[in-house]
Structure formats: C-alpha cells, structure tokens
Amino acid sequence: MIIDCNANLGQWPFRRTAYSTPDQLVERLARVQIDHAWVTSLDAVMLKDVTAANEPLAEAVADHTQLTAIGTVNPKWPAWGSDVEACAEQFGMPGVRVNPNYQSWTLEEPVFADLLAAARDLGLFVEIAVRMTDERHHHPLVMVPPVALSGLLANALEYSDVPIVVANAKNAEAGSVARDSGGDLPDNLFFELSHFESVGGVQSVAENIGVEHVLFGTHAPYFYPEAATLKVFDECDFSEADLEAITHANAERLLAGD
C-alpha cells in the first residue's frame, strides 16, 4: 500500500505536463504501484482567487476512489474562512494547502496561526508547499523564492493538534527545522519526500528528522513518479517497519489524528 501525499491535477502555467487528468494520473501512478494519491490543483497556485480551483478539483476526483482532493486556500484573501469551511464541509476534504510564497505571506505572520486555528476547528490538516519548481528555472517575470520555514516550529508547537505537512522541501530545509527543534520534531509535523535528494538522501533525512515524520510523495505529474519509488524502495535500505511508516502508516496516522 502506497499513499502519495503530493500529487497534482490540472495544468502548471509554465509547462504542459502529461497525465494531468484524473484518469491519466491514476493510471500513471498505478504503473509504479501507487494505490492512492492526495491531489492538489496546479491551477490554484497562480490564481488570484485560489479557491476557484477547489470545486472543479473536488468534482474531478469524485469518481476516482484512488484520489483524495486537497483544496487550496489563501489566508490573506478576504473571507478565506468560508473557503476553509467549504473544503471541510462542502467538499469533504481532509486538509488544505497553502502556497505562502505565491500568496505573499510568511509563516511568521498571524494569518498562519489563524489558519491553523480554523483548521483545528474543522479537523483539517494544513499543507505548506515550500516551492513548486526549481527557482533557477522560473519564468523571468514570475520569480518566486521558496517559503522560509522560520515560524513553522513555534506554530506547530502552539497548534499541536493540527497536522502540518511540509511539501516540496529539500533536505536542508527539513533538517533546519529538526535542528531548531533540538532533534525532537513535534508529533504533528510531517515532511513529504519528493524533493529529498543526494545519494541515500531520503534515508539520511529520515534518520535526521525521525522516520515517523516522513510522508511519501511524488510531486507527479510535474516529476516522474519513479523518482520517489526508486529513492525509497531501491536506493535506500529501509527496514520493513520504516517502509510501512513512510509509504502509508504515517499518512494514515495523520488522517486519523492520533
């Protein structure tokens, strides 16, 4: 059983990728034995009213039990609370994603805490996408630095009952949060592995931050999903227990709110 905690539907504005529809994505992920994926909307990132992508996303995955839609919200946008409510109550989503860098806010601003409070009330997890693509190759008119993670740890401790997923973070970014925590990350903080690099990198990050904080993710179809499966199953030599944790048990625990 593999749960991909970081897949996407829709179109990235700066590249046409294959496998952008639910049918195609499900088939493509099944090719590497991924059974289930949490999907966010690529369209949502560059929209001003990001929530316009949520209903189409929910409708797109409605007929696919292999997919779970994760809505996108912007806590700097007027009346964003109703968007979070819609994700939970109207669309039955388990979590919401934010792109603070594309939405012009930081994790140190009060809006982040406000979002976590709203998520807590509705039983949602909050997912932060650190980046969408390599900063060195951005469109020249849309150069967006990655999300700084300062402020993450304090809020994770404050809102210890809200699961927080950090997606698209690199080794050093996950490592710096672990270091700030004194090697003891809060139970509610998770890092998704699609951007972990270097030889044996997933394993060294897992040892660094604790395997119970690692979620399997592909960033497909922007990335080849094989990158994640080869890293986890072929390159690293995780124990069976660790593989269970990374590929689905951590995600299931996150959803159960244990």
């Binding site: 690099e197 030889v199 890293k231 072929d234």
Partner: peptide
C-alpha cells in the same frame, strides 16, 4: 549531491 534514484527515474 543528487540521488542516483531520482536521476535514473
């Protein structure tokens, strides 16, 4: 610096 796995993927 990069993973063999991510690149051969």
């Amino acid at each position: 610096g990069r993973s063999f796995a991510s690149q051969i993927a």
